[in-house]
């Protein structure tokens, strides 16, 4: 019960802090909208054949989401380290509560990011999502998987000197299977009306759960060392 209280307190503190400083959100949105504008100018809908559109747009949307997330999600732990509040947190509650609080914050940020970016992407590319339910499920499971990896990686690199470079370099190989899976699934949701096998959604959900469980048990070792 006290862990749940601590988890919620960390999430609320991070949300309040983010609303006041807008550090992660600004970094993420700046990257996302810059990329979207570049896409809208360079690959307008008329320059891509109808047959190629689902694959190209599925790839582009996940590239925007993944790299936007990588540009901002490390902040949750890096900020604690840079502002010397990490030890205050370390002596105040269990590592598990800290991990889950930070994870919940990152999940909130990524879902807000998806809520803002995806409609704009659809609008500027004039994309027709054939199977919206499958598309939304992939956004949720893919976003969750993205958060599992970035949260644990952010904790690992928080005390390193070249944080941002290291964060992207070690997160990307871990994210690669997830990105491939969600791109395939997203392409399917842009192309097929009746999806009988929800393999990509199941795989990305399994990935998120597996990485989440691994990160949960690994985090205390990283945090205490």
């Amino acid at each position: 019960m006290s862990s749940l209280k601590a988890l919620v307190a960390i999430w609320r503190k991070d949300m309040k802090s983010e609303m006041r400083t807008r550090y992660a959100i600004n970094a993420i949105l700046l990257f996302a909208f810059t990329t979207l504008i570049v896409i809208s100018y360079s690959i307008s809908p008329y320059r891509v054949s109808l047959n190629d559109r689902p694959f190209i747009y599925a790839s582009l949307i996940w590239i925007v989401l993944v790299f936007s997330a990588l540009s901002g999600l490390a902040r949750s732990f890096v900020k604690e380290s840079e502002s010397f509040t990490e030890d205050q947190l370390r002596i105040s509650t269990s590592p598990e509560a800290i991990f889950l609080g930070k994870l919940l914050f990152n999940v909130t940020v990524i879902f807000v990011l998806e809520l803002l970016i995806v409609p704009v992407f659809i609008l500027i590319t004039r994309l027709h999502v054939v199977h919206p339910v499958y598309f939304i499920l992939l956004l949720l499971s893919g976003g969750a998987g993205l958060c599992m990896v970035t949260t644990i990686m952010a904790a690992m690199i928080a005390r390193a000197r070249v944080k941002s470079v290291l964060f992207s370099a070690i997160s990307f190989p871990l994210l690669f299977p997830l990105i491939i899976t969600v791109i395939k699934g997203t392409e399917k949701s842009f192309r097929i009306m009746r999806i009988t096998h929800w393999n990509e959604f199941l795989m990305s959900t399994a990935y998120a759960i597996l990485l989440g469980v691994l990160a949960y048990f690994l985090f205390p070792l990283i945090w205490r060392d």
Binding site: S2, K5, A6, A9, K13, K16, T85, D87, L89
Partner: peptide
Amino acid sequence: APSINVYDELTAFENLRFLINVRG
């Protein structure tokens, strides 16, 4: 300790309330 700080972006009251909640 000099190496342990409080949160700049919270008020004094919010800092203490956060620590109460996080300690359960």
